[in-house]
Simulated scan of single mutants.
Amino acid sequence: MTDTVTAIPTRGADVPAKLARLHELLDARGVESLALTGRESLAWLLDGARVTVPLGGDPVLSAIVRRDGVELHILRNENDRLLAEELPDLASLGIRARTVAWFDTLPGTRADDGAADLREAQVAAELRALRARLLPGELARYRALGSDLATALTDVLAGAGAATRERDLTADLARALIALGAEPVVLLVAGEGRLDLRHPLPTDAPIGRRAMTVVGARRNGLIVNLTRWLGDEPGSAAVARRLLEVEADAFAATRPGRRLADVLADIAASYERHGFDRDEWLRHHQGGPTGYAGRDPKAGPATGDLVVDGQAYAWNPTTARQKIEDTVVVAGGRVEVLTVDERWPTVDVRGLARPDALPLA
């Protein structure tokens, strides 16, 4: 099993470009300061620092962004660890750090605390847009995580057999992710008896002749999402090929400047064109941009966010007993799949190698 963590670029190199984007936001809003209090925005600004304890908890710091620099407010019991292990060289980046008593509220988290002119919730869409285009360090870290995660999944799934329990397979996946320095965000496993479920939390059931695994993992703030299949059943290969055509239509529709709602409309129409029920897209979400959130945002019929060149996506077309998902970057009219392990079997779909099912051991 793979335990090696791929080397990543030193944190901090992209921070000046992120501060420049934030200053443009301040200018556009005509204000002097902005409070960042959400996990996604803080991890983005700080080049992937782990900003929450526990993993799904609230951030243990806040950031007040001003034109002359950034002031971090860190809970006292987290301060030493963050400064020593998580944060880049703050002084050289114009970032100052202050401690806050562990029982106090972090500045910027309350509407009435006066810590900044704008609170994060007031500019959520603008902040998503600032995060959208990946910077060089982010892209390098994302590629490394995608490769590491795909390799780890191959290692784990290649050892599974029909008698393997869903929970045991999930535990093996979790161990592999943590060994890579990644945090599990989503871990779903369904054996052949539960494949009709779109979000199958694992049970004690054996996986049988066919299984689906869905994994989301975070490292350096960035989240990789992918789905892989083991084994087969009558008709599964043919359905998978048609669903891959829906995914190919999703990639083709993801063009810079388009509204996510319009991309989703193209995906929805694609189902019927490839032989599925016209309402199939209503039975499960279809994914959307990814990065510092699993979906940033999840694409819906009213989502007005625009596709940005150089942005990461995780579309996931689904139908009964079938689902497709990888993390890709769409840039310059090209789709780069980040979650690739050359050992995994693939099929060609419009010139792009896409994952096939792995035979059961």
Rank of each mutant, 00 (worst) to 15 (best):
L55V: 15
A152H: 00
I223K: 07
S33T: 13
T213H: 05
L19N: 01
R241A: 15
A163I: 06
P107A: 11
H23T: 01
E342W: 05
P359A: 14
E272I: 13
T303H: 05
A162F: 00
A261N: 08
T327W: 08
L153C: 01
A13Q: 09
L352F: 00
E86H: 08
R110N: 10
G57N: 10
R141N: 01
G216N: 00
P59K: 00
V330M: 04
L145F: 15
A179Y: 12
K323Y: 03
R131W: 00
G48M: 12
I223T: 00
G30Y: 04
R283P: 08
A7R: 15
H284V: 03
G351P: 03
D356M: 01
A152W: 06
H73Q: 08
D204G: 13
A268K: 11
P359W: 06
V337T: 04
V329G: 02
V263I: 09
D296W: 01
R119W: 04
A314C: 09
W281V: 14
L134Q: 14
A268M: 13
A115R: 11
A28F: 03
Q311R: 04
S41W: 02
I223C: 14
H73C: 06
V123R: 11
T170E: 12
V215Q: 02
V340N: 02
D341N: 02
D113K: 13
R175K: 13
L226V: 06
L46D: 07
V347N: 03
S92E: 10
L130Y: 09
E40S: 15
V65C: 07
A150R: 00
D80L: 11
D348F: 02
V186E: 11
R241P: 09
G114M: 03
H73M: 07
R321Q: 03
G161E: 11
E233H: 05
D305N: 15
L226F: 07
R141G: 13
G291Q: 07
E86N: 11
L36H: 04
E183F: 12
D27N: 01
L46I: 10
W44E: 09
P200H: 08
E272N: 06
P359H: 08
V65P: 00
R76C: 03
E86C: 03
G94T: 06
V214G: 13
A35I: 07
A116F: 12
D279Q: 11
D47S: 04
I74H: 12
S270C: 05
L22S: 02
L201H: 15
P54M: 00
E280P: 13
W44F: 09
H199L: 07
Y313C: 10
D80W: 10
G235C: 09
A331L: 04
G332D: 00
D279I: 15
L45I: 02
D204P: 04
D168Q: 13
A84E: 10
R334T: 14
V214Y: 11
A190W: 04
E280G: 09
P136E: 14
D89W: 09
G146S: 07
A253L: 05
P289L: 04
A7G: 14
A299P: 03
P202S: 12
T290V: 02
P289W: 03
E78T: 06
G288E: 04
E183Y: 13
L187W: 02
L145G: 02
G235S: 02
D341F: 01
D341R: 06
V214E: 07
I207L: 12
Q286A: 14
R343A: 08
T10C: 04
V60N: 09
L145A: 06
T99C: 10
P234C: 08
G48S: 01
T318G: 12
G235A: 07
G57C: 11
D168E: 13
W44T: 09
